[in-house]
Simulated scan of single mutants.
Amino acid sequence: MIETLDNLNVRIRNQMQDYHPVILKTLTLKENLISLIESVSAAFPQRSLKVSFDCPDTLFIAEPYDLLVYRLIKELLTIIYKHSDGTHAWITVSSEKDTVNLSVCDNGSENPLNEKFETNSPLWHKGIFSIKEQISDLNGTMSISDNSPHGVRIEISFLMKGDVSYQYFVS
Score class of each variant (00 low, 15 high):
T4K: 07
S84G: 07
L24I: 09
N14W: 01
L24S: 12
K161R: 07
A43R: 07
W90K: 15
Y81D: 01
N101A: 11
R13E: 14
E155A: 04
S84V: 13
S121L: 08
P56G: 12
E63W: 04
I156T: 00
L5R: 04
F53Y: 09
P122I: 05
Y81H: 00
L8N: 03
L77H: 01
E118G: 10
L8R: 02
T87A: 11
W124R: 02
D106R: 01
S48I: 03
S136L: 12
Y19F: 12
I128C: 06
L8D: 05
V40A: 07
I79P: 04
G140F: 00
F53V: 10
V93I: 11
F117I: 05
N147S: 10
S52T: 08
K161F: 10
G151R: 02
G86Y: 00
C55V: 10
H20D: 05
I73S: 06
N120K: 11
I154V: 14
I154H: 03
T58L: 08
V22D: 07
M1D: 04
Q134W: 03
S109T: 14
K126S: 14
G108V: 10
S145I: 08
E133N: 11
E3C: 06
L159W: 05
K132H: 08
G108Y: 02
T141N: 13
Q46G: 12
N111I: 07
N147A: 06
I2A: 14
L8S: 09
H20M: 09
S165C: 15
Y81C: 02
M142Q: 04
V152F: 03
A62V: 07
N147P: 02
H88Q: 15
M16A: 14
L36M: 11
L76I: 09
I91R: 01
I73R: 03
E3T: 14
K132S: 09
E31G: 06
L27S: 07
W90Y: 11
I73Y: 00
I156S: 00
K161C: 13
S103R: 09
S103K: 06
L76N: 01
R153Q: 13
G108K: 02
T141G: 13
F60L: 13
I135T: 01
H88R: 10
V69A: 03
T87D: 12
S103I: 15
K74F: 06
T99H: 02
D66V: 02
D6F: 03
A89T: 06
F60P: 05
S41D: 11
T26D: 15
C55D: 02
I135S: 00
V51T: 04
K126V: 15
V69F: 01
T28F: 14
V164S: 14
S95V: 11
L68Q: 01
V164P: 02
L159R: 08
V170T: 04
